[in-house]
Write a protein that binds this DNA or RNA. Structure first.
Lengths: 201, 201
DNA sequence: TGTTTTGCAATGCGGTTGCATTGGAAAGGT
DNA sequence: ACCTTTCCAATGCAACCGCATTGCAAAACA
């Protein structure tokens, strides 16, 4: 057996170069040559690790969702041992907001992949998988908070989960276009949470 | 003077062909040749009415926003003489939702243009213009509703306007991906409005 | 009726795209 | 040392892109 290279590491390296490009200029604008140049390798190398552009995009999409998941999980455990439900929800929403370079990039690639998913059943299947799962997790978190008396009793956990997860997307659009500052977006979320949770928290 | 043709009508015809294509497959995927074919004319004709692809996109974007505005305005006057604030707000939000073929197309093109606007100052300027205006209108509507006792007194009209306009975008994403039915999206909006307005309405 | 101006079809061009092919350097296994 | 397999750089190719150019039919004006 000849020269052995960590395949997964290479694919990740290529995927991140792709994501860096996609977060600017959109997805369709990046070519195999661009990705190779951004990753600092030759186009032949890219072709060696991905049979087609579609496969490269698929892998990058998978990578970005996993990375976002880890980022959110890290932010969650950064809180103390017993974070309030409001803290948990707020953390997730803020991570979904396009505030930092990382989350901004993730939001844009998320959007770019979303548009492509409409015409690609394979991509759409990936969304079909994790988004409802996130919504279920959020609803569950809210239900537990309600039982603990943190969430106001007249709120519907399921409906609130739907709405809560819809808000960051909409706010991020205004954020990226410069209509809204980061502070304003955070204030809007905090305002919404004010109406959701009982005061003491 | 030779053969006279209604320039604006031709441009509109071309723009609508473009929008039809953009609502599938995204924006970058449509070529001048595609647009010409979809419009049933030659590529030379398209070039005759638009100096460049960029100008064509600019015009199409202008067209789609005007069309959406008219659609919403039509839906508003379809209500009786004295619609309640809740009816007004609900109507606007439902029109922003990607429910019908029309609004679905508008949402997708809106998204496609948004991504392109991030790299094009001219396009971004168009957003900079009408979106804050819509937000201001919504905030004003809510403020008047509050004075009339329709909006609960503890709500902040400005913040609520921000949130309300963010919700349809987020819900539409789930709608287009098939996570959510149209009925569920409408129910989510109605649920949100329940918490916003006083009961009698 | 001839002239002029407009609407547009046709074609060509340089550049870029994704992908296939080729060839060879490098690194185990034997 | 030789062979085999892997990694990947280089190049070629057909298709397509936006755009410029050309040419001409048709319609209003003279």
């Amino acid at each position: 057996m000849p020269k052995q290279v960590d395949h997964e590491a290479r694919r990740t390296q290529i995927a991140e170069a792709l994501l860096r490009l996609a977060s600017r200029g959109g997805l369709e604008a990046v070519s195999l040559r661009d990705v190779a140049a951004e990753a600092g390798i030759s186009m032949g190398a890219v072709q060696h690790y991905f049979r087609s552009k579609e496969q490269m995009l698929l892998h990058a999409m998978d990578h970005v969702t996993k990375r976002a998941g880890e980022r959110i999980r890290t932010a969650l455990i950064a809180h103390g041992r017993q974070p309030s439900a409001r803290e948990v929800v707020r953390t997730v929403l803020l991570e979904m907001l396009a505030l930092t370079d990382d989350s901004r990039m993730e939001f844009l690639t998320h959007l770019a992949f979303f548009m492509r998913a409409l015409g690609s059943p394979e991509l759409a299947a990936m969304y079909q998988e994790w988004w409802p799962e996130l919504e279920r997790w959020m609803a569950d978190e809210l239900r537990k908070a309600q039982e603990a008396g943190e969430l106001r009793p007249d709120r519907d956990p399921l409906r609130e989960a739907e709405l809560l997860l819809a808000v960051p997307d909409g706010l991020s659009v205004g954020l990226l276009l410069g209509h809204r500052t980061g502070e304003a977006a955070i204030a809007a979320i905090d305002y919404y949470l004010d109406g959701l949770f009982t005061k003491p928290s």
